[in-house]
Amino acid sequence: MLRVHFTQEDLARVRVVPTHGPLVEAMFGFRALRTGELGAVPELWRRRVTRGHPRWTAPLGEVMGPESAFDIFTLVGRTPTAAEGLESIIAMSRRRLSSEIEAAVRWRERRGLDGTRWPSAWVNLLAADVAPGRILAPLIDACHAAVVAPYWDRIQRHLAVESTARMQAIATGGIESLFRSLHPTLRWHASTLELLSRPGPPADVHLRGRGIELVPVVFLDAVEGPFWSLDDPSAPAVLFYPALSSLTGGAKIFTPYAESQASGADGGDGPLAQLLGRTRAAALTAIAGGCTTSALARRVGISAAGASQHASVLRRSGLITTVRDGSSVVHDLTPLGRSLLAGSDLGAIPTTPTPQPAT
């Protein structure tokens, strides 16, 4: 059990945040794939994501497997689009990655896990690379594209409704009502939040005025956290909790996509491919959740020039928007593009070959 202690200042800084972005959601989705604990997410989703044995699963499993305690949240924080999060991953220094690995090793030691199994040789090779983020980013991008991107609009809508309900719980019943409504394994006692499902002997943490953010995640079936920012010790702690309480809720988000006939990059002839052409339909699908032109090229398996051309056509058609962010441009769906993609019930996501660390 873990006891999280609140001061009056902490209580004033309790916030419900709808999401920390698609990459964080993808991280939890990937862990659900690895552990098989899907919660309220339909089995059809898992089968669809893993068909074809995507190449990104093995290397990501070494970095972010369920026993590594290595997570994207501490690397990117809250990022509204996948493109922003990927830029943070690309910019990650070798020193930052080493700090995360050391923290994961300490986490494993506290739980008595075998110290000879992790970090693996591949993780050590990654940590020795001068630009580890450039190796991780394509893997995380491919994972996000398969796990979250085709469903992101529906996920966002569900999370918005979920967070609104929790904020109403605060307004009607106060903090105690909020915490009691999040999950059966949480218990509020005086000024202390008890996480009953936390493994290990009883432990205590003190927020010391930093407050806490409560973030719903559709791929969780248990509470995760609290997490702390290594970059900003004064930032709020973050507690992730399950956003789905029933299989019915999961089916509303995932089933229409999972049961569809794929089109686009895998050669299908779904309705969107018939309307736009296979490559352009795959491009529209790949842009869901936001991406740069280079990321679009990787996801669809075309040249950067081809990705730019397809993006231009989709933009002129009113299906995507494009904004400049420094030296890059970021594409995202317009409401019309989201409606077209949702109505087509497709989600073909190409996979990306596994990059190897530079020697």
Rank of each mutant, 00 (worst) to 15 (best):
H158N: 08
G174N: 04
W107Q: 06
S294K: 12
P271C: 07
Y257W: 08
D114R: 12
P353T: 07
Q156T: 14
G249R: 11
A297S: 14
T321P: 03
R78F: 04
F240I: 07
M1R: 10
D325E: 12
G211Q: 12
L97M: 05
R31I: 12
W56Q: 00
A304V: 13
G277Q: 07
P199W: 09
S181V: 09
K252L: 15
A262W: 05
T255N: 10
G290H: 03
R34Q: 15
T292H: 04
L196D: 10
W188G: 09
I320H: 02
F240P: 06
L319E: 04
G264T: 06
L44R: 13
G65Q: 05
R315A: 13
A137C: 02
I135C: 08
F219M: 07
A265C: 12
P201V: 10
S263N: 05
V130S: 14
A348E: 12
R166I: 02
D231I: 01
P22R: 06
R154D: 14
T322M: 15
V215T: 01
F70D: 03
G36R: 10
Q261M: 14
A127Q: 03
A12I: 01
E67W: 05
R278E: 12
L44S: 15
A146Q: 12
S191G: 10
G52A: 08
P18H: 07
L136R: 00
S93T: 15
G289E: 08
F254R: 00
A149C: 08
L75V: 13
P350D: 07
G270M: 05
S181Q: 07
T354M: 10
V123Y: 03
R31D: 04
F30E: 00
A32T: 11
T116D: 13
P353L: 07
R13S: 03
G174C: 07
R34H: 03
D232Q: 14
H183K: 02
L314Q: 01
L186S: 08
V147L: 15
W107K: 04
L244S: 03
R278C: 02
F240E: 08
A358V: 14
P355H: 01
L11G: 09
A131L: 11
G268S: 11
L272Y: 02
V161L: 14
A288I: 08
A103V: 06
G39P: 05
A304C: 08
G225Q: 11
A286G: 11
R51L: 12
S98D: 14
A342I: 07
H158E: 12
M167G: 12
I320Y: 05
T321D: 14
D332Y: 03
R108Y: 08
A342M: 06
M1W: 09
R187D: 11
I320Q: 08
V105P: 00
H310G: 04
V17A: 11
H206I: 09
S181L: 09
L186Y: 05
H310F: 12
T293M: 14
H310D: 15
G268T: 11
S344F: 00
G29I: 04
R78T: 09
V148G: 02
R13A: 09
W152C: 02
L136C: 03
A160G: 08
D345L: 14
I253Q: 00
R315G: 04
T351D: 08
L230P: 15
I320G: 02
